[in-house]
């Protein structure tokens, strides 16, 4: 009886930890897809790219469905 109780606690702990990890990963993925808006002086226009760095002023508009 005691061992079943311990196993149950372990299972619940794994479930809780698992759900936390999922939430953290989901946040990371969505953060990478969060559009970063900027002004492009060369093109004299505004643009958004989908990562915070590395894409400069590429005119890549994030789709709402991606986030």
């Amino acid at each position: 009886m005691k061992s079943i109780f311990i196993i149950l606690i372990l299972l619940i702990s794994i479930l809780i930890l698992g759900s936390n990890t999922d939430s953290s990963e989901a946040m990371a993925v969505s953060r990478f897809q969060m559009p970063v808006a900027r002004y492009c002086p060369e093109a004299k226009m505004y643009a958004t790219d989908c990562t915070a760095e590395g894409m400069g002023c590429d005119l890549v508009k994030c789709k709402v469905s991606n986030t």
Binding site: M34, P35, V36, A37, R38, Y39, Y46, T48, A52, V64, T67
Partner: peptide, 9 residues
Amino acid sequence: IFPIILKNI
């Protein structure tokens, strides 16, 4: 809310 980073604007 639909999030955008606007700190450059």
